[in-house]
Structure formats: structure tokens, C-alpha cells
């Protein structure tokens, strides 16, 4: 299908990306464009290939075929040191925050500054405390360890870490999963504000439609490793695509069939 997302001024561009694990094809000639400075949300069910797509872009997983470009530069098969340079443009909020258990909160937030940019620890700590403030956490939280925080607070710390280096691109992996509706909305607001303040390009993957509607400029749907629909946030309700309709309304009946044993 031809994507209605503008391909001009693309920050990230995926073309015919293909990835399989054993016999299972996870990404099937997937093509997607993320325009510079815009927020794209990819929706899709569990096991549809969302997380693998994200990890391919970050170089954590290498696709068998296809091209991934960041700022027009091919990054699919970059060697280690060049990849580390490209990754300085990225920030990422993981589904379960993925905070480092052994480090206090402030050092988690400042990690990219200290290790990635060789900043002095004291200067990095000042920035970390400032970023914690931006996500609504008091400076004292900086001295706690991740295990002492609630799920919502961990997500906020993860967000502070994602924005600490003022990245050009931010990925959000299921940012609201496991949170109550109010905390989910707080996180959504923080994401919108952070992306706006930084002028960053954002890519989120989620199956939470309330979150998608709030943080997206564009929405794309992935199904069986392919992008089957893409459009603006306002177009999603009139997509004319039965897969998208079934997904956004959360119906069990429709073209998407779940593998459940029936009595």
C-alpha cells in the first residue's frame, strides 16, 4: 500500500524490512516513514512485530533484508562504533522502564550523559535532577533506587532518562501499559510536552488507543509484520480498513482472529 504519511523530509525511513526467527516471519517487507519533528504511533496486537521493528531501528536486532535510514544515512549494517554515534540521536522509554537496578535514580537518568557523552558526574547529576523535575519528580527521588519506586514513577524516571540527552528521536515502547488510566494520561501529557519542547521526532508503539489518539500526529497499523494502514490521527476513525476498525473498537469478531482454543 502507498503510505499517506509524507515521505519528504523523512527522519527515519524503513524500506522492505524483513526479519524472521526460525520459520516464523516477524517483519514482512515492512515499509514506513517517520517525518521529521512529527509523532507517529504504530498500533497493533501482541505478536504483530511492533517491538522487533523498533529493535531493528535501534540495531539491537539485525534484519535479513531491507533498508533503514536515519537522516538519509543507511544504518542497517553499521559497525559498533558508528552505531554508537547514531544512537546518540536516540532516546527510548522501555515498556517496563528497564531502569538499572544497581544505580540510584539520578544515575539512571544521567547514564547517557556520563557514559555516552563523557560528562562530569556532578554536571550530569544537575541535569538529571532538572529532568526529574520536568517529569514531576522531586529531587529527593534521585537518591532512591528503582526498586523503591511505583510503576508510574518508574515510567516517569524512564521518560526522564529518555529525554536527558535532548535526543532528536525518541521511541516509546508501550508507554502506558500496566498503568491506571489517570497515570496513563499523566504519562501521555508528559510525552506530548517533552516531544514538543525538544522538537523531537517520536515513534511510539502501543495498543492503547486513548494513548495513541493523544500523542500521535500520524497513526499506522501493523499486522503480521506489515504496515496495513497509515494516516493522520483524525483519519483513523474513518480508515475504511476493517482490520483497523476491529482493532480500534476492540472487537473479538472481525478479520483479525486470535489463536484461542474453543470448547
Amino acid at each position: 500500500m502507498s503510505s499517506p504519511i509524507p515521505t519528504k523530509d523523512a527522519k527515519i525511513e524503513l524500506k522492505n524490512v524483513h526479519k524472521r526467527f526460525g520459520k516464523k516471519i516477524v517483519l514482512h517487507d515492512l515499509s514506513l516513514t517517520i517525518p521529521k519533528g512529527k509523532s507517529l504511533v504504530v498500533i497493533g496486537g501482541s505478536g504483530s512485530g511492533k517491538s522487533v521493528m523498533l529493535k531493528c531501528m535501534l540495531g539491537i536486532i539485525r534484519p535479513e533484508k531491507g533498508s533503514i535510514k536515519v537522516d538519509g544515512k543507511e544504518v542497517t549494517r553499521l559497525p559498533g562504533s558508528d552505531r554508537e554515534k547514531v544512537l546518540t540521536k536516540f532516546g527510548m522509554l522501555f515498556q517496563n522502564a528497564a531502569l538499572f537496578d544497581s544505580l540510584p535514580v539520578w544515575e539512571n537518568v544521567a547514564f547517557g550523559l556520563i557514559q555516552g557523552r563523557n560528562m562530569r558526574r556532578k554536571d550530569a547529576k544537575d541535569i538529571a535532577i532538572e529532568k526529574l523535575g520536568q517529569v514531576g519528580l522531586a529531587p529527593e527521588v534521585g537518591d532512591l533506587h528503582p526498586a523503591e519506586l511505583s510503576g508510574g514513577m518508574q515510567k516517569r524516571v524512564g521518560l526522564a532518562r529518555a529525554i536527558a540527552t535532548d535526543p532528536e528521536i525518541i521511541f516509546f515502547d508501550e508507554p502506558t501499559t500496566g498503568l491506571d488510566p489517570i497515570m496513563a494520561d499523566v504519562i501521555n501529557d508528559l510525552i506530548v510536552n517533552s516531544v514538543k519542547e525538544l522538537g523531537a521526532t517520536a515513534l511510539s508503539i502501543t495498543h492503547d488507543m486513548a494513548s495513541a489518539r493523544k500523542i500521535a500526529d500520524y497513526i499506522a497499523m501493523i499486522y503480521k509484520g506489515e504496515i496495513i494502514w497509515a494516516g493522520t490521527r483524525d483519519e483513523v476513525d474513518q480508515s475504511g480498513n476493517e482490520y483497523v476498525d476491529q482493532f480500534i473498537h476492540g472487537r473479538a469478531d472481525g478479520p483479525i482472529q486470535m489463536d484461542v482454543l474453543k470448547p
Binding site: 532516546g91 538499572f100 547517557g112 557514559q115
Partner: peptide
């Protein structure tokens, strides 16, 4: 192993830190 299954090793990579070195 815990760092692997909780994606902390992937997080290191996204923070421009080589997990082998670190």
C-alpha cells in the same frame, strides 16, 4: 540474565554504551 530479560542490556545499547565494554 535479569538485566537481559528486563531489557536493561537493550537499554544500555540505546544509551550509546557497549554492553560488552560495560
Amino acid at each position: 540474565g535479569t538485566m537481559r530479560v528486563t531489557e536493561q542490556i537493550d537499554a544500555l545499547t540505546t544509551l550509546s554504551t557497549n554492553p560488552f565494554k560495560y
